[in-house]
Nucleic acid binder design. Structure first.
Lengths: 146, 146
DNA sequence: CCTTGTTAGTTACAAAAACAACTATTACCA
DNA sequence: TGGTAATAGTTGTTTTTGTAACTAACAAGG
């Protein structure tokens, strides 16, 4: 039997981050899944367009660090449900500009409100300073390339 | 086009946590994937056995919050590669006790060392206090049920 | 004992993700 | 120009995951 040592899996950052990420997105997932039939990639695309305005799939892919095939399929589904429209870019006819329809904007606004409330609930047991530190360090981890 | 507001997707905790989790496990993933041909579930099972000693699939499932089918498949693969053996529990012949083989213990020790170094590298840009706060809040998020 | 219900683990099938190959367009440069 | 390389996005195929149904073993009350 292996010797015990001071390493605790529960504190190993990649593991811990994953546990926290999964647990803390569960309830939010229920909302966009049950209520809008969306997948994670789909609400992410919706939010990118809702927050940053019109974008191409490529731009979303870069900002969200998601593979282009995931974006492509998410965009397809959102277009099927008439939540966005695609407009060929005349300056570069390979790419297309994605624009939320009024229905898409409505869905975004509702989910955005849910997200705000949800984030507030998640941080409700933390002090302002703690929340600030937490987000700063997470951004640092998200940007770092080891 | 939607109005801009003060909500930033990059700071929405479920999103941010996920980005941090993915980015910060990338390089570690390379190691267990390329060097041992393991999947995420597999190294988790390996680590549970390496750290906590002999366990049943059910116990790992509870501690790691992973579904029993994932565990079952990971155990199968690890057994195929002779990294663990399964022993029927005579007190309850439905369950089986999982035990690392010497090869499994060796794999664990190597990956454990990698993990330690990796965790140190991830936190190298943070103060002791920051790291402590980070882990504490992450544990809090991971345990919370909203 | 013998039903009824529960639990540990596996298997089968459906959903989703990862990866590679493809089309259409643009960019560059000889 | 025209030919090669690069880029935006899609499609097809293979892995991996999620979900439900299954087998085998236990538990407990009649």
């Amino acid at each position: 039997m292996p010797e015990k040592d001071d390493f605790d899996l529960q504190f190993f950052l990649p593991y811990l981050l994953n546990q926290a990420a999964e647990e803390s997105s569960l309830a939010f997932q229920q909302v966009y899944k049950r209520r809008y039939g969306m997948l994670r990639t789909e609400w992410r695309v919706l939010f990118h367009l809702g927050i940053y305005g019109e974008m191409t799939a490529k731009q979303i892919s870069q900002r969200a660090r998601m593979h282009k095939t995931k974006i492509s399929r998410a965009v397809q589904k959102l277009a099927d449900r008439r939540l966005l429209t695609r407009v060929r870019d005349d300056r570069d006819r390979r790419s297309e500009i994605l624009v939320l329809t009024p229905a898409g904007q409505g869905a975004y606004r509702e989910l955005h409100q849910v997200a705000c409330d949800y984030d507030a609930a998640l941080t409700s047991g933390m002090s302002k300073a703690e929340v600030q530190t937490l987000r700063r360090l997470l951004v640092q981890l998200a940007r770092r390339q080891i």
